[in-house]
Design a protein around this nucleic acid. Structure first.
Lengths: 341, 341
DNA sequence: ATGAAAGCGCTAACAA
DNA sequence: TTGTTAGCGCTTTCAT
């Protein structure tokens, strides 16, 4: 099939080793030899077979990134950033999506394709803590995302409680008092929604107010449709909220859609804040205020962590699990742009 | 490091070949032997080294998918579908994004990582036809997307002219006459925008009308911001349009945003039709009518084509380049939901 | 500075 | 039915 080192060596009249030296920029090669080899390489159109190189070196230059859903703009944007960050380390990204299903996440976290990849970045949702603890030996893994685990793995996660607190405080500062939380979870296990809900509560308490738990609405998923349904649910009740803090932008967007359908104005009647800062939030009829995690930061930190882990392998250097918190900020747009009450 | 075939063979007291047979479900193995080997595999926690297997077989089970931008929901959704379609063939997807830059597309189309992948699905924008013709030997490649090439490669592309015609006709049927086209290109080279623009023209002609070329607005890119700017540009002129057909949903969404800012109603003042059917179009304050390409179909066709090409390699079976047109349909939503004039 | 040869883990002829 | 062995293309001691 392809042109191999041997072919080049034959053509250049040198040994395989010499060609290899040239290809790998080994310093001790005479310019003449290098020239001759280079010419042979060009003439034959030689390209190194990475598979063979990897077999020999035990590294592949491939990492897996497993996210819940590519259709979710937040994850799509993060994935793009991870691909770029990985490229800067000469790593190529294998993309998987798990639909947030424990089973699929399990398959990914446990050596699926483990011999092909040097490492793994996983953004788990359904996975249990115990699954993590029972993970068999395998390539280094770094966790990404807002579900707490406190397991033996590096984890890139923003300060969800703090971020939510700031968002809700912004609404309280606007004079809103009936601030709903959209996107809670029924499950008792650790869920990112719980953290943001805690932030919601703390914001009230910090302001000397008592949060009204009846304004907490759970959703099935994290999609626009879930937000739309949750909002409808809320509006069907007696007293309507004057503000909404949504688990994420998609839910917020869905909620805004319902508000418009019901003839309510945003932000006059109901102010809305989301979470994620997906691009679509900037271009709705009413642009969406949101908490913006630094996605570039997140991607960079995850890849850097993983690269470090990969490098540390074998060297026996013990490296405790780290919890790393990327930056975030509140972005105020039209959905809360209103004079103080 | 890992456990190899040899280790298992040693443990089970058989030869490497036998273990290999068991692992690969080779039929002629006695149940007892199989059992013994299986036990050894389990005890040792053996997992085949795919890199080695690939080196041997000359196949890796990896394919590259290169799209312009993961942040564009249309491409993100297509990418997700491709990953699923590939999984059904036991293929794993390496995702690249090119930003639509000729240079990056060139790197991808020409053997970048060519030894690691079995095939390549490329969605080019900046690439020239000549680049394609000069492509060196490499793994099979299938083209995806709406730029015409008529090169020596399989190409999955919907009937852009026909699809655009139907969309514009829908607007004309509504009684609209000043139907603008947003998202044209200045470049003279083949561009998907040209095809959709042709459909725009043909719809007028077919209705016995003369298209008003002053309603064609070019944009820099294909993003929401481009749509917003183009719409603003259009509204600053004397006579405003009563309908807009946008190159894609993002441009349409951006345009709608501008319309709202200017106090115009959709669809009463200006009806809008987009292209792509991204999910976000369903949840705006006014849901977006659009041309919906069958993304599952597109992904499946691309992967199937590629798999066929991969299989045909070496077998000398000549297989001419094919142009394959996936299905599409017009989805009418609120942005054009209005009584006939 | 360059060459010879071993071996990464696997599969596939060929043998037994 | 199972074992032996030769590579796939590359890197890497160890010689020279």
């Amino acid at each position: 099939m392809g042109v191999s080192l041997k072919d080049v060596a034959l053509r250049a009249g040198v040994s395989v080793k010499t060609v290899s030296n040239v290809v790998n920029d080994y310093p001790h090669v005479t310019p003449q030899t290098r020239d001759r080899v280079q010419r042979a390489i060009d003439e034959l159109g030689y390209r190194p077979n990475l598979t063979a190189r990897h077999l020999r070196k035990g590294r592949t230059g491939l990492i897996t990134l497993a996210i819940p859903e590519l259709g979710n703009p937040y994850f799509a944007e993060v994935a793009g950033a991870v691909i770029d960050a990985a490229a800067r380390h000469d790593l190529t990204v294998l993309l998987d999506h798990t639909a947030g299903l424990r089973e699929k996440e399990l398959v990914v976290s446990q050596g699926f394709r483990s011999h092909v990849i040097d490492g793994l970045i996983l953004s788990p949702i359904g996975l249990e803590r115990s699954d993590l603890l029972e993970r068999p030996e395998g390539p280094p893994m770094v966790l990404l995302g807002e579900r707490e685990y406190e397991g033996p793995y590096d984890h890139i996660m923003i300060d969800n409680v703090g971020a939510a607190r700031i968002a809700v405080r912004h609404l309280l500062d606007l004079g809103r008092r009936r601030v709903a939380f959209l996107g809670a979870r029924h499950e008792s296990v650790r869920q990112p929604a719980h953290l943001r809900l805690r932030g919601w509560r703390e914001a009230f308490t910090a302001a000397g107010l008592v949060p009204d738990e009846s304004l907490v609405v759970a959703t099935q998923g994290y999609d626009r449709s879930d937000g739309a349904a949750a909002m409808a649910d809320l509006l069907d009740r007696d007293q309507r909220p004057d503000a909404v803090f949504a688990y994420n932008d998609l839910i917020a967007l869905g909620a805004m859609r319902t508000l418009v359908e019901r003839g309510l104005r945003v932000p006059e009647d109901v102010a809305v804040v989301g979470f994620d800062d997906i691009e679509e939030g900037r271009y709705g009829a009413v642009s969406l205020s949101t908490v913006a995690p630094d996605k570039g930061d997140i991607a960079r930190l995850a890849v850097d962590c993983l690269v470090e882990r990969i490098a540390a392998r074998g060297t026996g250097t013990p490296l405790g699990p780290r919890l790393i918190q990327p930056g975030y900020r509140l972005i105020v747009r039209e959905s809360t742009a209103i004079r103080r009450a």
